Every structure is written in structure tokens, then in C-alpha cells.
Simulated scan of single mutants.
Amino acid sequence: MNAGRVAAVSRNAAYAFSKPNHPSIRLLAGLGVEGDVHAGETIRHQFRMTYEPDLPNLRQVHLMHAELFEELALKGYEVRPGELGENITTRGVDLLALPTGTLLHLGADAVVEVTGLRNPCAKINDFRTGLLGEMFALDPHSDAFTFKSGVMGVVRRAGTVRPDDPIGVEWPPLPHRPLERV
């Protein structure tokens, strides 16, 4: 069941593009990361709150794979954990290949249900010029674009998450639904 490890954990109490790393974060069931601006039962995304304030928050936790940072480094972009706004940076889990509804067991107690792909926004180019274009990949089988900027999830079971914690992957029952933007 253990598929990978937590590389870093991040949170920010204020709206900002990047999130500073911390020794640990606490996940709260049905809310998100304690002390993070995006925690809440309803949408906390700054732009979407203006027109969909009462919809459920399917973006309580943002997870991103550290392998993306290595790929970006080969193209001349230096990106460190938390700098693209993720709460949990992973290593050894192919987040983008997971189906909707996958449960990620983080550390001893926490469980996050994957709800969909993070939709990359123009602020990525404000962080590093040209980086937004690297957040998309063309699927050779369908000619459709996929997003590489991580996955979003909701907290199903509370717990503390720290760097080097194990990550277990529990696939949902068949039929699997592919990840879509949330």
C-alpha cells in the first residue's frame, strides 16, 4: 500500500501564491489544512468565491509531485516545495495518474480523497515567466491537454503530516473516473 513519501508540507494563513514550508501540518476532516487560507467547507479560492461562494470546497488540500520540480529544472526553472502553492509535496506517487476518489493515507492517521486536477492559473507566469506553458502536457492518445500542476483533495480523516511520512494509495472501486479540473 505504501507508494511514496511526503517530501515537504506547507501552509499560508494569507492569500499569496507561494506557501512557506513547515515541520508539520495538521489536516482537519472536512476543512483542509489548519491555519491555511484555503481551509473551509465551502470554496476558498479567492477568484471563485466571488461567483460560487456556497459550493463545496473540493480544493481543501493541494498536492504536487516533487518529480515535476526536477523536470522543470531541466528546462531552466528553479522551483522548490511550496512555491507553486501546494500544501503537500510528494515523492514516488504518480498523482496525475490517480483516478477521482483515490484515498491517500498520509502519515499515521490523515486521509485525503483526491477530487481532481489543479487548474493552472496565470499567476504561475508571475512567479516565473514562461512557467505556465510547462504546466500542460498533450495526451498523444486523445490530443487533449492535461494539467501537470498537481491534484486537489478533501480531508476525510484528520491527522498530522510531516516530511518523510509514508503515503499509501487506496484506489476507488471500479469503474475508475479520470481526474478533471476542480
Rank of each mutant, 00 (worst) to 15 (best):
G101Q: 09
E134P: 07
A110I: 08
A110M: 04
G133N: 04
C121W: 10
L117R: 08
L104M: 12
L95M: 11
D109G: 03
C121S: 12
G130M: 11
D126E: 08
G130F: 09
P120I: 14
A108D: 15
L96K: 10
L103N: 09
F136G: 03
G101C: 12
T102C: 08
L106G: 15
G101F: 13
N125R: 07
A108G: 08
D126A: 07
A137M: 04
H105R: 15
A122Q: 14
L104P: 04
F127N: 01
I124A: 15
N119R: 14
V111G: 11
R118F: 14
G101H: 11
D94R: 08
A122Y: 13
L104N: 04
I124Q: 09
V93S: 03
V114H: 10
V112D: 03
R128A: 14
G101M: 12
L131E: 05
T100R: 15
G101N: 09
A97I: 00
F127G: 01
V93R: 11
A122P: 00
P99W: 12
L117F: 10
E134H: 15
L95E: 10
P120K: 09
A122R: 14
F127S: 02
F127V: 05
E113Y: 03
G107E: 02
G101I: 13
F136K: 10
P120Q: 13
T115Q: 13
A122S: 15
F136D: 06
N119K: 11
N125Q: 05
A97F: 02
E134M: 10
R118N: 15
L138T: 12
K123A: 08
A97E: 10
F136C: 02
T129I: 01
F136A: 05
T102D: 07
V111C: 12
D126Q: 04
A110E: 05
T102N: 08
R128D: 07
I124D: 03
V111R: 13
A97M: 05
T100L: 04
A137R: 13
N125D: 15
C121R: 07
R118K: 15
N125E: 06
D126S: 08
L106K: 11
V93A: 08
L106I: 09
V93K: 06
G107A: 07
V114Q: 10
G101L: 13
D109C: 11
N125H: 11
I124F: 15
L117N: 02
H105T: 10
D126R: 05
C121H: 09
G116V: 02
D139K: 01
A97C: 07
L132A: 08
A137S: 10
F127E: 01
A97L: 11
V114P: 08
V93E: 05
V93F: 09
G130C: 06
A137C: 01
D139L: 01
M135E: 09
G116W: 00
G133H: 05
V111S: 09
K123Y: 08
F136I: 09
G133S: 10
T115P: 04
L138H: 01
R118W: 13
T100S: 04
T102M: 05
R128F: 03
G130L: 07
D94E: 15
I124V: 15
R128Y: 06
F127L: 12
G116Q: 02
